[in-house]
């Protein structure tokens, strides 16, 4: 009877409208989407594509104007289960400074479980585990103010993990970070997904962050315009550039070569793969000398 559903989140024909005195703006248009348990999904879209509005609907922070969102079978519109939904879907935002509540790292991580009324010893265990999971145990007594952006963002992730959610939704968590911080966050998320089986929904406009995802969804103008494996999505560099997305330089190079008549496969993303494609396109004389 209590069969575990394979989808943790189901978005069914959801529309979201912002309204003020004069304007009415539809941010998300009749969108449907399932997030499978244990998957790593990346949602790509430029600023204003509706991706943040969608993200906030996944944990009930935004309620759909029309349509329904189900988290583990629970409709996010139901008031009595609001807290339960938020616990199941942890949410991390762009600015790490504005989601850290306490002045000591471990006390901040404890904030969520404390709100859930969990016994003190159990909170202690969860906080230690969560900090371990984001590799920040050494900083548990530190002041968040003195940490780097990437470290602060990992604390924010730990704060969510401590609530033992089923799924993590991250709304542009790397937008304000330097390259080092960005790399830290992406590798943390991959590890959580691969080792702990955490379902991850990562929203970003950096295409290269989607490289290791199971599935990439591209949003534009409130709608899903592509939904496939990263390799397939990335082979369509033109579409990605058209919707205003960041394209890694390897993809850009291959794309330009292709439009200049080179026979290259444009979905190669890594530096090695790109070089191999170019060598292949240049002709056989070079492929032979590859092993030296």
């Amino acid at each position: 009877m209590d069969e575990v559903m394979s989808n943790i989140i189901e978005v069914k024909n959801v529309t979201y409208e912002y309204t003020d005195e004069e304007n009415r703006f539809t941010a998300v248009k009749d969108l449907s989407l399932d997030i499978e348990r244990g998957s790593f999904t990346v949602i790509l879209g430029h600023n204003g594509s509706g991706k943040s509005t969608l993200a906030k609907m996944l944990n009930g922070l935004n309620k759909p104007t029309r349509g329904d969102v189900f988290v583990d079978g629970i409709n996010t519109k139901a008031e009595e289960t609001e807290i339960e939904v938020k616990r199941k879907v942890g949410m991390v935002f762009q600015n790490p400074d504005n989601q850290i509540i306490a002045s000591i790292v471990e006390e901040d991580v404890a904030f969520g479980p404390e709100n859930l009324g969990i016994p003190p010893l159990e909170i202690r265990r969860r906080v230690d585990n969560a900090l371990e999971a984001v590799d920040m145990s050494d900083f548990k007594k530190s002041t968040p103010h003195h940490l780097s952006g990437g470290q602060k963002q990992r604390i924010a992730i730990a704060g969510m993990i401590a609530m033992e959610p089923e799924c993590l939704v991250l709304d542009e968590p790397t937008a304000m970070l330097d390259p080092k911080g960005r790399a830290e966050i992406i590798s943390t998320l991959l590890r959580l997904n691969r080792e702990k089986g955490m379902t991850v929904v990562l929203i970003t406009h950096y295409m290269e962050e989607a490289e290791n995802a199971d599935r990439v969804i591209v949003m534009n103008d409130g709608e899903i315009i592509a939904d496939d494996k990263p390799k397939v999505i990335f082979s369509d560099v033109k579409m990605l550039k058209d919707v205003g997305l960041d394209v890694p330089q390897t993809a850009e190079l291959l794309y330009k070569l292709k439009s200049n008549g080179f026979k290259v496969d444009t979905h190669a993303l890594s530096i090695k793969e790109a070089a191999e494609q170019i060598i292949k396109a240049l002709g056989t004389s070079y492929t032979d000398s590859e092993e030296k």
């Binding site: 938020k86 006390e107 404890a110 709100n115 003190p120």
Partner: peptide
């Protein structure tokens, strides 16, 4: 933004709240 983040962390006032540190 902080208010939203707190809501996402299941903050619901002091009711039923426990503390890690005793």
């Amino acid at each position: 933004e902080l208010a939203e983040a707190m809501e996402c962390r299941c903050y619901n006032g002091g009711e039923g709240r426990t503390r890690m540190k005793q």
